[in-house]
Design a protein around this nucleic acid. Sequence first.
DNA 1: CGGTTACCCTGGATGC
DNA 2: TGCATCCAGGGTAACC
Length: 302
Amino acid sequence: MPELPEVETMVRGLRPVLSGRRILRALVHDPFLLQGFSADDLAGRLAGEVVLKVRRSGKWVVLELAKSQGIIVIEPRMSGAFWLVAPARPEHTRLTIDLDKPEQSVWYCDTRRLGKIRWYDSAELADCAMSRSQGTDALEISASELHEKLTRTSRAVKPALMDQKVLAGVGNIYADETLFHAGIHPERKASRLTKAETGRIHSALVAVLRAAIAAEGTSFDQSYRTVLGLEGGFLAENSMYGRAGMPCKRCTGMIVKTKIRGLIGRPTYYCPTCQPASARRKVFRAPAEAQPGVIRRRRGKT
DNA sequence: CGGTTACCCTGGATGC
DNA sequence: TGCATCCAGGGTAACC
């Protein structure tokens, strides 16, 4: 579930509790998430370690260890979350880290078990591995680099924005939100975007991510919570996600939920009026309610 | 090679 | 109530 703002919120919550602290012991409850090492191995390496730094890279949580100089990378993917407060060990806990003086437990939970935990022996190895699968962080990329990266691909702009190698941190919710604020249709061909348009995407991206971080992310249903178990507040400010059939906040037209090419299996929300399919032509066809699974529009033919 | 899809999991919601 | 199906905010192997 977590995208950049949610992971940033996790890291900000973990940092004061974890950094500089000694790990008493680690308990691996589910070795399934471990990539390339065993539960005993991880427990052995963590016992007695000191956490040097907690930081974020794209949608990943990075723990730097002081003694071994090792790096742990946690990818929460869809359902990973950290808990600092709970009456007892939370359900679906996959890893427990017990801290020393004063005693405090950090639980890492992952309902769907899609997340991954990786270990690197040095910062160099970790950086090398991470830069292979992640582009520039979405909060650090410049407007000109974004323009260059987007116009290099012929894909639709939304899947391009969500490609972690293009830029790291944007997922389904914030891609829709960003494109709405930029006034760009999610299926616009990325290579055809003008400098002005990618500039609007860049400004919208930064504004949306900052607002979402300030609100501590987006929560709905039983999904994402902060490390203190609180809901993030961005859903109230959010203009697109989950608002199919509701009025657009800018033009009062109706928000559409659909599926787009390159992102089968994930919903896309957009406003057909504020985000026209072509930069030059207005869309007259009612684009609504394409049946789930059916791919709308192919070369403008109806 | 670039673009797209199938699949990895589980639990909650929905439909019959 | 019970069972089947669908859905979800991510990432990647494998396919065309």
